[in-house]
Simulated assay, not measured.
Amino acid sequence: MKRQDRLSIALHVLLHMGQRPEQAITSEEIAGWVGTNPVVIRRTFAGLREAGIVSSVKGHGGGWSLTRSLDQINLHQVQQALGERLVTLGAREESPGCLVELAVHQALDDMMEEANRILDARLAGISLARLAADVGPGFHQWKPQQH
Rank of each mutant, 00 (worst) to 15 (best):
L70E: 07
I118M: 07
E94S: 06
G136V: 06
L48G: 09
A81R: 07
Q80K: 15
H105K: 09
V104R: 08
H60T: 12
T44I: 04
V40E: 12
R122N: 04
A133L: 14
H76D: 13
D109F: 03
V57D: 01
G18V: 00
A46S: 08
M17D: 03
L11K: 01
R49T: 10
Q72P: 00
I30C: 04
E113W: 01
S95L: 14
E50V: 13
L102A: 15
G63W: 07
L82M: 09
W64I: 03
E113L: 07
G59S: 11
I30H: 02
E28G: 08
G83K: 13
D134Q: 12
Q77W: 00
S55R: 13
S69E: 13
P137D: 08
V78G: 10
T67G: 02
G125A: 14
T44M: 15
A132S: 09
G125H: 10
Q72S: 11
S69R: 11
R92D: 12
K58F: 07
L108S: 06
L82R: 03
R117Y: 02
R20I: 11
I9Y: 08
Q145N: 08
H60Q: 14
I53H: 01
L102K: 11
R117Q: 13
D110F: 03
A103M: 05
Q80T: 10
A31P: 01
R49S: 13
L108K: 04
A124C: 08
A124D: 12
N74H: 14
V54F: 11
L70T: 01
T44W: 00
L119Y: 01
K2N: 12
H60I: 12
E84W: 00
I9K: 09
V87H: 05
L11R: 05
H105Q: 14
S127L: 10
S8I: 08
I30M: 15
A129Y: 06
L7R: 09
P144Y: 01
L131P: 03
S56R: 05
L89P: 00
N37Q: 14
Q145G: 11
A133I: 05
V40K: 11
E113A: 03
P144A: 15
V34P: 00
Q146E: 15
G18N: 05
T88E: 15
G18R: 07
A103T: 13
Q145I: 07
P21Y: 12
Q77Y: 00
I41L: 13
H60Y: 04
L66C: 01
R68Y: 12
R68H: 07
E50K: 13
A46Y: 05
V34A: 01
